[in-house]
Design a protein around this nucleic acid. Structure first.
Length: 487
RNA sequence: GGCGGCAUAGCCAAGUGGCUAAGGCAGCGGUCUGCAAAACCGUUUUACAUCGGUUCGAAUCCGAUUGCCGCCUCCA
């Protein structure tokens, strides 16, 4: 089995071969910390989180680097508006970033460098670029000369000539070429600034990623990722800087996740449809969001709509219900037994469930197909449960099926909660409902049922239903749960 | 203007040359139940945008058409 990944640089699916056998280096562009993260950030974070989990599950060692951009124009502007230090603003939003990501079950990266902590690395790289003639200095500004770098445009698939035609008019007059971009910006009063050979100033946007990725992963590394919109200019420029400075190839594979729209419209502040992760988790359980975000291939555009989210929710509840049935029949899942990474290194004979799942994931991380398999498995488990779960042989089979299901789901970062906890959270109704009262009513109803007073029994059940409570009469008694309240 | 992507049933979404075109959601019918709920089974008129072409054979390859979208400017 071979993992194939779509490489944005070649616009083809390619067999993934790490530079060092079984040790993968990945750099993903993180966030600029000047505001709360939105659901687009969530998609990107979850997609790459899934990639990392998958590589590890397949037995690879992974060094995952994800940066924070903590100095740039937007941060400076926002800090001015809020009348606070840029560093305070950045720290505040770094904190909310972690909170949001942890809620979504996104694992921390191994290395999480900040631009402001790598000013020396950045200055060194700019220095090299100037020395090698790829950059020029005008006053206190340093520019990268795109004409000096022969393969400029190769990543994003565009030609310099085409870009000039579409270039904006308000080009910085100092630039030798309209597409030249800033490596180092001269300081303005009141802005964060550092000493440099070109006077006080701060780094341009792209250079931090070139400097930090090479510092932690080497001049050439395996995978560089980010949102689709970063291909140009950010990644194009990153690549140009790093390759010009180091004289070797930069990232071998470029991966870009597709964009999220909201009710079929592009998410933008002007349209007022900007959904932060915090807004989203107020309406939807984080696991529902995660399932939704992985329900379509990561490179395709995905529409964040009420109906899609509610479909994801129904699907996830179905799975957790099955897990709960399993808990009841064969006992709770032993978390210590959980996913011994690598979960997939052995036990791949090509026909079993895990192999099939692996096959889907190996095809450029086809999570949609993988989820299809998970739902198939759930149906299979339900059938077994409907049969006769008391037979030891079936119990053993159920236990294995659950292990398989959960080890696959874990790669997607799903099904990590206990069913009891998940269902209680998601099926929550009016919070003022008293447990004792509900149980008292259920006892009354059962008394009515025992004397076959169906009218009285049904009336009690209807009342409970109005309170948002659904009853299920099972062979060994009546259980109740809150009605799904659709967000 | 330049570059690129997408179009699969009521909705969401896999499948990129060959068995009955995954899976989910919703609806309907059935089994179960006192009735329900949950689960299971079945089902939802011709589901592969249109028109040509290549091929023994295409949703899948090629061309044209229509429609939608993204990037080219900060953006995940």
């Amino acid at each position: 089995m071979t993992l194939k990944l779509y490489n944005s640089a070649t616009r083809k699916k390619e067999v993934f071969k790490p530079i060092k056998n079984d040790h993968v280096g990945i750099y993903v562009c993180g966030v600029t910390v000047y505001d709360l993260c939105h659901i687009g950030h969530a998609r990107s974070a979850i997609v790459f989180d899934m990639l990392i989990r998958y590589l590890r599950a397949r037995g690879m060692k992974v060094t995952y680097v994800r940066n924070f951009t903590d100095v740039d124009d937007k941060i400076i502007k926002r800090a001015k508006e809020m009348a606070e230090e840029t560093s305070d603003l950045a720290n505040r939003y770094i904190k909310t970033f972690y909170e949001d990501m942890h809620t979504l079950g996104v694992l921390d990266a191994d290395i999480e460098p900040r631009a402001t902590e790598h000013i020396n690395d950045i200055i060194n790289m700019v220095k090299i670029l100037v020395e090698k003639g790829f950059a020029y200095v005008i006053d206190s500004m340093v520019y990268f000369s795109v004409e000096k770098f022969k393969t400029y445009g190769a990543l994003s698939g565009r030609k310099l000539e085409d870009m000039i035609a579409g270039a904006r008019i308000d080009v910085d007059e100092n630039k030798k070429h309209p597409m030249d971009f800033v490596l180092w910006k001269g300081a303005k009063p009141g802005e964060p600034q550092w000493d440099s050979p070109w006077g006080k100033g701060r780094p341009g946007w792209h250079i931090e990623c070139s400097a930090m990725s090479c510092k932690y992963l080497g001049n050439t590394f395996d995978i560089h990722g980010g949102g689709r919109d970063l291909i140009f200019p950010h990644h194009e420029n990153e690549r140009a800087q790093a390759m010009a400075a180091n004289g070797v190839n930069f990232a071998n594979y470029w991966m870009h996740n597709g964009f999220l729209t909201v009710e079929s419209e592009k998410m933008s502040k002007s349209l007022g449809n900007f959904i932060t992760i915090r807004d989203a988790i107020r309406l939807y359980h984080p696991q529902v969001l995660r399932l939704f975000l992985l329900s379509k291939h990561y490179r395709s555009p995905l529409d964040f709509s009420k109906t899609s989210l509610s479909e994801a929710k129904s699907g996830l509840i179905k799975i957790y219900r099955t897990l709960q049935r399993l808990d009841e029949e064969i006992g709770p899942y032993d978390a210590s037994n959980k996913i011994k990474i690598p979960a997939f290194k052995e036990a791949v004979n090509g026909k079993d469930f895990k192999s099939t799942f692996l096959g889907a994931m190996d095809d450029d991380l086809n999570t949609a197909a993988g989820l299809g398999l998970i739902f198939d498995k759930v149906k299979g488990i339900n059938r077994l449960l409907d049969k006769s779960p008391t037979i030891d042989k079936i119990k053993a089979k159920l236990s294995k099926e659950r292990n398989d299901l959960l080890s696959c789901a874990n790669i997607l970062g799903l099904l990590e909660e206990t069913p009891a906890k998940f269902l209680e959270n998601i099926l929550r109704g009016a919070s003022d409902i008293k447990k004792d009262e509900v149980e008292k009513l259920i006892r009354e109803r059962n008394e009515a049922r025992s004397i076959k007073d169906w009218a009285a029994a049904d009336s009690i059940r209807d009342n409970l239903c109005d309170m948002g409570i659904i009853l299920e009469d099972k062979p060994d008694g009546t259980v109740w749960r809150f009605k799904t309240n659709d967000a």
